[in-house]
Design a protein around this nucleic acid. Sequence first.
DNA 1: CGGCGCACCTGAGTGC
DNA 2: TGCACTCAGGTGCGCC
Length: 277
Amino acid sequence: MPELPEVEVTRQGLLPHVSGRTITAVSCSGKPLRQSVPEELLQACLCGKSISTVDRRAKYLLIRLQDSGTLVIHLGMTGRLGVFPGAAAQAKHDHLILFLDNGMEIRQNDTRRFGSIALWPSEQAKELEQEFVSRQGIEPFSREFTGSALLQLAGKSRQPVKNFLMDAHRISGIGNIYANEILFAAGLHPQTPANTLSEQQWQQVVDTAVRILTKAIEAGGSTISDFLGASGESGYFQLQLAVYGKEGTPCPRCGLALEKSVIAGRATFFCSCCQPL
DNA sequence: CGGCGCACCTGAGTGC
DNA sequence: TGCACTCAGGTGCGCC
């Protein structure tokens, strides 16, 4: 599910309910996620610690502890985080529960288990975070996200621009849905080889991406008041989508039927008139 | 090295 | 109703 906007909305929803709270106990389902969950490490490093804040980097949530340790959660395709009263029934596929000192619980739920949970213990947090950051692509809400930076990143790559946008090692946070939406809004065919875009066109991609991601976060923000106990359910929202999942329906700009194809194994939606190759 | 295909996993939807 | 099959918004590995 989550792309950058959903993760950011989860962060914003989580923050007021967890910052300053102390974790009193930890419970794991025992089932592996993408990697196995380091249960003993979590028990040792989380119990008795208070949460200072929650940050986001790319699609990862960074739950910061007062001792500078960091709990790193990736939601994968189906992951959710929510804050529940202890009395609330647990859900199928809850894999991590953090018990808080006010009787509430942070619950991580992930049906397909494509997510991940890791911990940077305080002693190694700095270097582990540096290593982590070095693997991530440009953050769309950072100053480095510019047309000239993308032009340079693209270099000679003939990779379709859609794959380029979705490549987390180059740009972080843009998944299949928003890649489709951004390219439609920017008037670029998803198959356009990355090395053929001008700096101006990259700048157009940058501006469009920021606009669409911002709108999506705002749309999600309106549901944050329901965050508590909702398992993120209402924290997930859908920006009004122009093309994703809409093959056969009229293009919102020109009225021609939208098309669907598969690029790199991912469903791709576009208007062949507004996004010429 | 770059780029593609695939595997990881469960569940929802579809068609017979 | 049941079964078989397809598809799903992420990521990283292996392979050419």
